[in-house]
Protein backbone atom coordinates (compact mmCIF):
# COMPACT_ATOMS: atom_id res chain seq x y z
CA UNK A 1 0.00 0.00 0.00
CA UNK A 2 2.72 2.47 1.02
CA UNK A 3 4.83 1.82 -2.07
CA UNK A 4 1.86 2.26 -4.40
CA UNK A 5 0.55 5.51 -2.94
CA UNK A 6 3.49 7.19 -1.22
CA UNK A 7 4.38 9.59 -4.06
CA UNK A 8 0.75 10.64 -4.50
CA UNK A 9 0.37 11.38 -0.78
CA UNK A 10 3.78 13.08 -0.52
CA UNK A 11 3.24 15.26 -3.61
CA UNK A 12 -0.18 16.45 -2.41
CA UNK A 13 1.09 17.17 1.07
CA UNK A 14 4.15 18.95 -0.33
CA UNK A 15 1.93 21.22 -2.43
CA UNK A 16 -0.07 22.15 0.65
CA UNK A 17 2.58 22.47 3.38
CA UNK A 18 5.37 23.67 1.04
CA UNK A 19 8.23 22.15 3.02
CA UNK A 20 9.89 18.81 2.24
CA UNK A 21 10.51 17.70 5.83
CA UNK A 22 7.03 18.70 6.95
CA UNK A 23 5.51 16.94 3.94
CA UNK A 24 7.37 13.75 4.86
CA UNK A 25 6.11 14.01 8.41
CA UNK A 26 2.54 14.49 7.19
CA UNK A 27 2.94 11.54 4.76
CA UNK A 28 3.95 9.27 7.64
CA UNK A 29 0.96 10.49 9.67
CA UNK A 30 -1.36 9.82 6.72
CA UNK A 31 -0.28 6.19 6.41
CA UNK A 32 -0.40 5.63 10.18
CA UNK A 33 -3.95 7.02 10.17
CA UNK A 34 -4.80 4.86 7.14
CA UNK A 35 -3.52 1.71 8.90
CA UNK A 36 -5.44 2.56 12.04
CA UNK A 37 -8.72 3.26 10.26
CA UNK A 38 -8.56 0.70 7.46
CA UNK A 39 -11.38 -1.27 9.17
CA UNK A 40 -13.65 1.73 8.67
CA UNK A 41 -12.95 1.92 4.94
CA UNK A 42 -16.02 0.39 3.32
CA UNK A 43 -14.89 0.71 -0.27
CA UNK A 44 -17.62 3.24 -1.14
CA UNK A 45 -14.98 5.48 -2.68
CA UNK A 46 -11.70 4.70 -4.38
CA UNK A 47 -8.65 4.04 -2.18
CA UNK A 48 -6.96 7.06 -3.79
CA UNK A 49 -9.92 9.32 -2.91
CA UNK A 50 -9.86 8.04 0.68
CA UNK A 51 -6.11 8.65 0.94
CA UNK A 52 -6.43 12.12 -0.64
CA UNK A 53 -9.04 12.99 2.00
CA UNK A 54 -6.75 11.90 4.85
CA UNK A 55 -3.83 13.76 3.26
CA UNK A 56 -5.78 17.00 2.90
CA UNK A 57 -7.08 16.78 6.49
CA UNK A 58 -3.66 16.00 7.96
CA UNK A 59 -1.93 18.71 5.89
CA UNK A 60 -4.45 21.37 6.92
CA UNK A 61 -4.23 20.26 10.57
CA UNK A 62 -0.46 20.55 10.33
CA UNK A 63 -0.67 24.06 8.83
CA UNK A 64 -3.11 25.21 11.53
CA UNK A 65 -0.89 23.88 14.30
CA UNK A 66 2.15 25.53 12.66
CA UNK A 67 0.28 28.83 12.52
CA UNK A 68 -0.62 28.53 16.22
CA UNK A 69 3.00 27.80 17.12
CA UNK A 70 4.17 30.74 15.00
CA UNK A 71 1.73 33.05 16.80
CA UNK A 72 2.89 31.73 20.18
CA UNK A 73 6.54 32.12 19.06
CA UNK A 74 5.87 35.73 18.16
CA UNK A 75 4.33 36.49 21.56
CA UNK A 76 7.14 34.57 23.28
CA UNK A 77 9.82 36.50 21.36
CA UNK A 78 8.42 39.78 22.69
CA UNK A 79 9.46 38.74 26.20
CA UNK A 80 12.91 37.32 25.53
CA UNK A 81 15.77 39.17 23.80
CA UNK A 82 17.57 35.96 22.79
CA UNK A 83 14.70 34.36 20.94
CA UNK A 84 14.96 34.87 17.22
CA UNK A 85 11.78 34.90 15.24
CA UNK A 86 11.70 32.59 12.22
CA UNK A 87 8.55 33.97 10.64
CA UNK A 88 9.89 33.98 7.09
CA UNK A 89 10.98 30.52 5.98
CA UNK A 90 13.11 30.13 2.85
CA UNK A 91 11.33 30.24 -0.52
CA UNK A 92 9.74 26.94 -1.49
CA UNK A 93 10.17 25.50 -4.97
CA UNK A 94 8.64 22.16 -5.91
CA UNK A 95 11.44 19.66 -6.69
CA UNK A 96 9.88 18.87 -10.08
CA UNK A 97 10.22 22.43 -11.41
CA UNK A 98 12.89 22.82 -14.10
CA UNK A 99 15.70 25.24 -13.24
CA UNK A 100 14.71 28.02 -15.70
CA UNK A 101 11.21 28.17 -14.19
CA UNK A 102 12.29 28.03 -10.55
CA UNK A 103 11.95 31.78 -9.93
CA UNK A 104 8.46 32.14 -11.39
CA UNK A 105 7.31 28.91 -9.72
CA UNK A 106 8.60 30.21 -6.38
CA UNK A 107 6.46 33.34 -6.86
CA UNK A 108 3.45 31.15 -7.64
CA UNK A 109 3.94 28.98 -4.54
CA UNK A 110 4.32 32.10 -2.41
CA UNK A 111 1.00 33.39 -3.76
CA UNK A 112 -0.55 29.94 -3.29
CA UNK A 113 0.44 30.06 0.38
CA UNK A 114 -1.75 33.17 0.82
CA UNK A 115 -4.91 31.55 -0.56
CA UNK A 116 -7.79 30.47 1.70
CA UNK A 117 -7.59 26.74 2.61
CA UNK A 118 -10.38 25.45 0.35
CA UNK A 119 -9.12 27.33 -2.72
CA UNK A 120 -5.58 26.09 -2.06
CA UNK A 121 -6.73 22.47 -1.75
CA UNK A 122 -8.75 22.66 -4.96
CA UNK A 123 -5.84 24.26 -6.83
CA UNK A 124 -3.23 21.75 -5.56
CA UNK A 125 -5.40 18.72 -6.33
CA UNK A 126 -6.19 19.99 -9.82
CA UNK A 127 -2.87 21.46 -10.90
CA UNK A 128 -0.28 19.44 -8.98
CA UNK A 129 -2.06 16.10 -8.90
CA UNK A 130 -3.94 16.51 -12.19
CA UNK A 131 -7.31 15.40 -10.78
CA UNK A 132 -10.54 16.11 -12.60
CA UNK A 133 -13.20 18.35 -11.07
CA UNK A 134 -15.38 15.35 -10.19
CA UNK A 135 -12.64 13.60 -8.25
CA UNK A 136 -11.70 16.85 -6.49
CA UNK A 137 -15.35 17.27 -5.48
CA UNK A 138 -15.35 13.72 -4.04
CA UNK A 139 -12.18 14.38 -2.07
CA UNK A 140 -13.43 17.73 -0.75
CA UNK A 141 -17.02 16.60 -0.18
CA UNK A 142 -18.30 19.37 -2.45
CA UNK A 143 -20.31 19.55 -5.64
CA UNK A 144 -18.60 19.92 -9.02
CA UNK A 145 -19.87 23.52 -9.52
CA UNK A 146 -18.56 24.40 -6.03
CA UNK A 147 -15.12 23.09 -6.99
CA UNK A 148 -15.22 25.04 -10.27
CA UNK A 149 -16.11 28.17 -8.35
CA UNK A 150 -13.27 27.57 -5.87
CA UNK A 151 -10.81 27.13 -8.75
CA UNK A 152 -12.04 30.27 -10.47
CA UNK A 153 -11.62 32.29 -7.28
CA UNK A 154 -8.21 30.71 -6.65
CA UNK A 155 -7.04 31.73 -10.12
CA UNK A 156 -8.33 35.28 -9.72
CA UNK A 157 -6.66 35.64 -6.31
CA UNK A 158 -3.39 34.17 -7.57
CA UNK A 159 -3.38 36.57 -10.52
CA UNK A 160 -3.98 39.52 -8.18
CA UNK A 161 -1.19 38.47 -5.84
CA UNK A 162 1.27 37.72 -8.63
CA UNK A 163 0.56 41.10 -10.25
CA UNK A 164 1.21 42.80 -6.91
CA UNK A 165 4.36 40.71 -6.40
CA UNK A 166 5.78 41.65 -9.82
CA UNK A 167 4.80 45.30 -9.36
CA UNK A 168 6.74 45.45 -6.09
CA UNK A 169 9.75 43.50 -7.32
CA UNK A 170 10.17 44.88 -10.82
CA UNK A 171 9.55 48.58 -10.28
Amino acid sequence: MVTSWQDMVYNTSLGLVQNEMDAEDVTQEVFVKAFESIQGFKGESKVSTWLYRITVTKSLDFLRSKKRKKRFGYVYSLFGPDNELSINPPEFVHPGVVSEKKQVAAALFKALDQLPEQQRVAFVLTRLEGLGHKEVSEVMGNTVPAVESLLQRAKTNLKKQLTEFYRQNLE
Binding site: T27, Q28, A105, L128
Partner: peptide, 29 residues
Protein backbone atom coordinates in the same frame (compact mmCIF):
# COMPACT_ATOMS: atom_id res chain seq x y z
CA UNK B 1 4.82 37.25 -16.31
CA UNK B 2 1.69 36.40 -14.37
CA UNK B 3 0.57 33.87 -17.01
CA UNK B 4 4.09 32.45 -17.10
CA UNK B 5 4.03 31.95 -13.33
CA UNK B 6 0.63 30.25 -13.47
CA UNK B 7 1.83 27.93 -16.23
CA UNK B 8 5.16 27.17 -14.54
CA UNK B 9 3.72 24.11 -12.78
CA UNK B 10 1.98 22.63 -15.83
CA UNK B 11 3.03 19.03 -16.42
CA UNK B 12 5.07 18.97 -13.24
CA UNK B 13 6.27 15.44 -12.36
CA UNK B 14 5.26 14.13 -8.94
CA UNK B 15 7.74 14.75 -6.14
CA UNK B 16 9.13 11.44 -4.91
CA UNK B 17 8.85 10.40 -1.30
CA UNK B 18 11.83 9.30 0.77
CA UNK B 19 12.82 5.69 -0.10
CA UNK B 20 12.95 4.86 3.63
CA UNK B 21 9.39 6.07 4.19
CA UNK B 22 8.01 2.57 4.76
CA UNK B 23 10.60 1.82 7.48
CA UNK B 24 9.82 5.12 9.17
CA UNK B 25 6.08 4.42 9.11
CA UNK B 26 6.70 0.96 10.64
CA UNK B 27 8.77 2.57 13.37
CA UNK B 28 6.05 5.15 14.05
CA UNK B 29 3.41 2.42 14.26
Amino acid sequence: WVDGALESIDGLPRAQANPFLFTRIQERL
